[in-house]
Simulated scan of single mutants.
Amino acid sequence: MADCTPRESIHSKAAIKGHPLHPMLIHFPVAALVAVVFTDLAYLWTVDEFWSRASVWLLGVGAVGGITASVFGLVDLLWVSKIRQKVTAWCHAILAVMMLSLASLNWMLRVVGLGPAETEFFWGLYLSVLTALLISVAAYLGGRLVYEHAVGVDLSN
């Protein structure tokens, strides 16, 4: 049975003309960080350096883009009290920090090359898969914030 209690919109502080920036900016980093799993597997299958380089670039786009998008999410978390009161928002934020930390570590390992290539690759693949799993949970929680709690949604229409 559906909950019939009226919901109230929770407006974003980090927005342009009412359009929240965090959900606008997060799609490319998410796509990039999930795609790393596939480019890592393609490298494992073909041993073509193209896939290794593609993973490095995708990790860079994902880490830098994710950090940029998270700044706007952090603005909302810290400055909008109704968002701060949501356990879902805190869980989403904590998972995002964990995921971005793993993605940044993965990127650093590949750029700096801190070990033998074989060891580095398997750690990178492990970190890529773990990052993708964390993204899926964080994305689910982000969806709950939008669809269940009306964060960044205008319900006045």
Rank of each mutant, 00 (worst) to 15 (best):
K86G: 00
F122A: 00
V80F: 06
N106A: 04
P23C: 10
A96P: 00
Y140C: 03
E8A: 06
A32T: 11
S12W: 10
A32H: 09
G124E: 01
T5Q: 14
L74W: 12
V137W: 14
A93N: 00
L114C: 08
T39S: 09
L95V: 05
Y43H: 08
L145N: 07
A132C: 11
A14R: 09
E148W: 06
L77M: 01
L100G: 04
L58P: 06
V129W: 06
S101W: 11
G60R: 12
Y43I: 02
F50E: 01
R110S: 02
Y43A: 02
A117H: 14
W107G: 02
L130P: 00
G18F: 03
M1I: 07
L44S: 12
L134S: 07
W90K: 05
E148Y: 04
A138S: 13
L41D: 04
S128I: 04
P29E: 04
A96T: 14
L109S: 08
K17I: 03
L78E: 02
H27Y: 09
H149V: 01
H22T: 08
Y126R: 03
W107H: 13
T68M: 13
S70R: 01
H149A: 07
L77W: 05
A35F: 10
Y43E: 03
A15L: 10
V87D: 10
A89Q: 02
V153R: 12
A54E: 04
I83Q: 09
A63S: 14
V97S: 02
E118W: 14
A132V: 12
G73V: 05
A14S: 12
L133V: 15
